[in-house]
């Protein structure tokens, strides 16, 4: 589904990703772990198409299409959605407008007509309920004045409404208390499906107790230096990253 090959990315002439390889197949859940500053957010930002990142080598393809040539919105419509580490506040844009505009953009891409208002409201109310969010969130500005946990829930609400083929979740667990973590994890788990892939970026094992990945990768200094199954997370928790980094250096 997603294929990242030998990806090199610089920010302001500083190389951050240094030849990264990653393959995600349909239905798989991957966790990317690694120390702060390793380049995890850079990877997700480049996949989503954020400005300011220069790809100097390598490729990213999604279902065979060259992602790097797609506009930001085309990537989302093709089915890749990024859940932000730091969701931005958008004063004055109501959540309901964002959800409706985004859903209709996807439907248009699929050749479907715009969703009828009652059907749309029914759909989002269900999703809100699932995320244990009040209906009033719909008429509040996107993330404005939301707590850290509410912002993360709002990201997942968007995922549930838009049902991407590939959900990229950047530190969706940071800043969450245990109850919010459960709600968010349940939201993510409900997305799991044979045709859908999920990539979680985190540096805490804790999240992986709730969303159990099929594959774990360690990203350090711009490269994936080790991959394994879920047992790798336990080992990382016990022993930290240093041994992996040392092992890779040899």
């Amino acid at each position: 589904m997603l294929e990242v090959k030998d990806l090199r990315v610089s920010v302001e002439d500083k190389e951050i990703l240094k030849g990264l390889n990653l393959t995600i197949n349909p239905g798989e859940v991957h966790a990317i772990m690694g120390p702060n500053g390793a380049g995890k957010s850079t990877l997700s930002a480049v996949i989503a198409g954020r400005d300011g990142y220069e790809v100097t080598a390598g490729s990213i393809t999604f279902e065979g299409e060259n992602v790097l040539e797609m506009e930001i919105e085309e990537r989302a419509r093709a089915g890749m959605l990024l859940g932000f580490q730091y969701p931005v506040e958008i004063p004055g844009v109501k959540n309901v407008y964002l959800l409706k505009a985004a859903l209709n953009a996807k439907r248009k891409h699929l050749g479907l007509p715009e969703i009828e208002a009652p059907e749309f409201m029914k759909l989002v109310r269900e999703k809100l309920q699932f995320m244990k969010m009040d209906n009033s969130f719909l008429h509040r500005s996107v993330n404005e004045g939301f707590s850290g946990g509410e912002k993360k829930r709002n990201e997942i609400l968007q995922m549930l409404t838009l049902e991407p083929k590939l959900a990229l979740l950047d530190e969706i667990d940071s800043g969450l208390d245990i109850d919010a973590l459960k709600v968010v994890s349940e939201g993510v788990n409900s997305l799991r499906d044979a045709g859908r892939s999920i990539v979680m970026v985190t540096h805490y094992q804790r999240l992986l107790d709730y969303i159990v990945p099929d594959h774990i990768h360690v990203l350090s200094d711009g490269k994936i230096i080790k991959s394994g199954d879920k047992s790798l997370a336990l080992e990382l928790e016990k022993r930290g990253y240093d041994w992996v980094i040392e092992e890779a250096a040899q």
């Binding site: 930001i72 990024l82 844009v93 964002l98 985004a102």
Partner: peptide
Amino acid sequence: FALRSRGIDEAMARGLLTLA
């Protein structure tokens, strides 16, 4: 960027922010 990353085209994203 946040709006476009949800699939909303650039013109509409600008519209939403202008209305905002």
